[in-house]
Design a protein around this nucleic acid. Sequence first.
DNA 1: ATTGTAATGTAATAATATTACAATTTTATA
DNA 2: TATAAAATTGTAATATTATTACATTACAAT
Lengths: 161, 161
Amino acid sequence: MTHVIDSKTIQHPHNHKSCLQQALHVAEQVCHQKGLRLTPIRRRILELICTSHKAIGAYELLDIFHAEDAKAKPVTIYRALDFLMEAGLVHKVESLNAFIACLHAESQHKSVILICTQCHNAYEMDAEPIYEQLFALSKSIQFTPHYLTLELQGICSHCAA
Amino acid sequence: MTHVIDSKTIQHPHNHKSCLQQALHVAEQVCHQKGLRLTPIRRRILELICTSHKAIGAYELLDIFHAEDAKAKPVTIYRALDFLMEAGLVHKVESLNAFIACLHAESQHKSVILICTQCHNAYEMDAEPIYEQLFALSKSIQFTPHYLTLELQGICSHCAA
DNA sequence: ATTGTAATGTAATAATATTACAATTTTATA
DNA sequence: TATAAAATTGTAATATTATTACATTACAAT
Ligand SMILES: [Zn+2]
Ligand SMILES: [Zn+2]
Ligand SMILES: [Zn+2]
Ligand SMILES: [Zn+2]
């Protein structure tokens, strides 16, 4: 994975339609490749998450989706989220209890999530060297690393300007 | 801060009383120094968190504390937690929605929280170089870093053995 | 003593997430 | 194609985590 974030594009106003198209296209590909079923519900939830770069909560998703499908319940959303996360198409932002779409699910991820506390956008940036060092460090004390939560809050370039 | 974790001690069975004493002693010092009031409730909640190295949830704390003080309500716990976190005596483990005591609150912290998914113990380890690199990386794309969430799940040396 | 501030009491509610079981749809295979 | 197995969705209830609002009490500073 190259730098997923590009301060010239994602942090600033940009043609967001291409983000959405990209994410959905990759999702189709990944699911086909892994033999997973991107059902209408799952696809729609992914679309809703991709609406912006702000992390979105499960109940916000429910509010929107319920207007389209009155049968939708919390578990409808959580199931879709579980599927999408399992497939690597969506990430949970633990420090916000909210979710973002992965724009580069096709490749491996060792990323940090950058969260702007002003505009509330959240994006991934490649951080593979960080993972490697941290994993090495933990191994040096006989701790076997499995999964890293790495989220950086701050002010994005657009909001700082 | 030196290495807060020591695979020879905290990860393995150890005289935990000294962890507790240490944490409470430091808490007294820190509060005195910063002009903060470590009231009986706050002190007791800290003690309860220090009971073990497992991260503990707010409602687990409430269950225990309520048995000692029938007036206790959720907000009693959350207020104490807010105070303790603000004072740097307790950290929230975002990926668990639970809390741990800081054993070295007297010094600055740039730590990673190591979480064993088997025994559920959680400890801090110094990770200052990681912070520096990540902060530098974020600045290089004009993102101003404020606060890092850094939690590593895995298997501790005791459980691996 | 008086007054302002911080801490706690009390009640209600909001926000996030999971469990259990039934019905339906899809997939596999006889 | 018919049938069985597996995956997905429907539905209801509930569990878990966290906050808001306002009253009261304790503490600190004049
Ligand atoms: Zn975009
Ligand atoms: Zn911003
Ligand atoms: Zn200990
Ligand atoms: Zn362990």
